[in-house]
């Protein structure tokens, strides 16, 4: 693992009106890492992801990708820099076909990368089988595959995955996490938001635990898995 920091958040504060959602969080992601952000409902995980993609504007603090400040940029410029997100709730374009969804994923490319499309279909063969089907008619798991596949189509350097396991059966969660591993093996850096702490920590190199807008804990996955606090709060084990 190299030591160069690819992505860095410093003292990030975000609020909805007068309600503070993020109260100054800092984290960093090195090139090639899988880093996970864990936390309960309302901890600020999705807020963090939406702020990185500039769908929400930060109140203060900085978000840097390869040294470039993101907080001053409009949302549509973020993908072009190489940061692509598969959002919470998938947000696939339901009345468009699978293929059209994937083509929209490559919107920032002047020409769609055929190799990437082939790779996405290799990762998720179901998508190729259903490429003419409307995305809204896919099952939840297939929609999740489509959301991840779509976010890969812009050939990003860093992938933001917001709760890919949400609402999926355990067997599908396992499959999706294996596919994320394969994506990371391709050299992509992954920032993964999860409630499923155990699965996420097994996959990730490092993790941060978010608790009501603050980083409560951080460390390598092994450290976090062994931590009593984590065991109690997120893995449901009393030691």
């Amino acid at each position: 693992m190299s030591n160069d920091v690819l992505f860095e958040i410093k003292d990030l504060e975000v609020s909805y009106g007068s309600i503070a959602a993020l109260k100054g969080i800092s984290l960093e992601v090195r090139k090639g890492e899988i880093v996970t952000i864990l936390g309960a409902n309302g901890a600020g995980k999705t807020t963090t992801m939406r702020t990185i993609s500039q769908l929400l504007k930060a109140k203060s603090g900085s978000i840097k990708f390869k040294g470039q400040e993101l907080t001053q940029l409009p949302a549509h410029k973020i993908v072009k820099l190489g940061v692509s997100q598969s959002p919470e709730g998938r947000k696939v374009f339901g009345i468009l076909t699978v293929e059209e969804n994937l083509m929209l994923g490559a919107f920032v490319k002047t020409r769609m990368n055929k190799e990437t499309l082939k790779w996405v279909y290799q990762l998720f063969p179901r998508l190729e089988e259903r490429r003419k089907q409307l995305a809204g008619t896919l099952s939840g798991g297939e929609q999740q595959m489509l959301a991840i596949g779509r976010s890969l189509m812009s050939d990003p350097e860093m992938l933001l995955l917001d709760e890919p396991s949400l609402g999926l059966a355990p067997i599908l969660v396992k499959a999706i996490f294996e596919q994320i591993k394969m994506i990371a093996n391709k050299g992509l850096t992954v920032l993964l938001v999860e409630q499923n702490a155990k699965a996420a920590l097994k996959l990730a190199d490092r993790g941060y635990v978010l608790d009501v807008g603050k980083i409560a804990l951080s460390g390598t996955s092994t450290e976090l898995l062994a931590s009593e606090k984590i065991q109690e709060a997120y893995l449901g084990k009393k030691s």
């Binding site: 993609s53 949302a75 947000k91 696939v92 009345i95 919107f107 779509r150």
Partner: peptide
């Protein structure tokens, strides 16, 4: 396609770089 995507979900469209 950008018009159709924006009509369905503006935030998702922004995530595509639209």
């Amino acid at each position: 396609a950008a018009i159709r995507a924006s009509a369905i979900d503006q935030d998702a469209a922004r995530l595509m770089g639209i």
